[in-house]
């Protein structure tokens, strides 16, 4: 402010210097009292018009526009929040369903796994039993075949021996005797 005042004073003095060689006007135009009524008069007129224009036209319109915008924005924000909460709800539900589904799936998988294991175990046991039985049967068969074949050989030998005896010794031998001798 001090600087401005100094410039102001400087201008006042400089003007008097310039005015001396210039148009010869006296002092600052700001100090010319004769222009005051006109300035004040037109200031009052223009400013009153401006005031009425602002008061009656600009401010009501602007404030309604700004209020409308505020309302619209807050409404939009509310709606967006509603939608957002809905969306999060749906997402939560989806997650729940997903987790329960995956749990179900894992239980199903483990169940079927154990079932499968059991089944295979049973199958294995059964097959083993069957195989054992089959082995026993075949062993028995082998044994019986052995006996049979031994008997057959013995009988065949007996017959042969009988025939030999009948041919060469002309004797009807007793079977028991022959058997005794053969053994």
């Amino acid at each position: 402010m001090k600087i401005l005042v100094q410039i102001f004073i400087l201008l006042l003095s400089s003007h008097t210097i310039f005015a001396a060689e210039g148009q010869g006007s006296t002092g600052l135009p700001q100090m010319d009292i004769t222009t005051f009524p006109s300035q004040l008069f037109w200031l009052v007129i223009t400013f009153t018009i401006l005031y009425i224009f602002m008061w009656r036209v600009v401010i009501p319109k602007l404030s309604t526009t700004i209020e409308e915008r505020k309302d619209k924005i807050s409404n939009d924000i509310n709606e967006a929040e509603k939608f957002n909460s809905e969306a999060t709800g749906i997402h939560e539900k989806y997650e729940e369903q997903m987790s329960s589904a995956s749990q179900n799936a894992s239980t199903i998988i483990s169940e079927s796994k154990s079932q499968m294991n059991e089944y295979f175990e049973n199958l294995k046991l059964e097959n083993e039993k069957k195989i054992e039985e089959m082995i026993k049967k075949s062993q028995e068969m082998i044994k019986s075949r052995e006996k049979e074949s031994i008997n057959e050989v013995r009988n065949a030998t007996l017959e042969t021996v009988k025939e030999i005896i009948v041919k060469y010794l002309d004797k009807t031998p007793n079977d028991d005797e022959i058997l005794k001798k053969l053994n």
Binding site: L11, S14, H15, F18, A19, G22, Q23, S25, L28, P29, Q30, D32, T35, S38, Q39
Partner: peptide, 10 residues
């Protein structure tokens, strides 16, 4: 030309 007060004359 450099009368700075001229611009304020009414």
């Amino acid at each position: 030309p450099i009368d700075p007060i001229h611009q304020f004359e009414i």
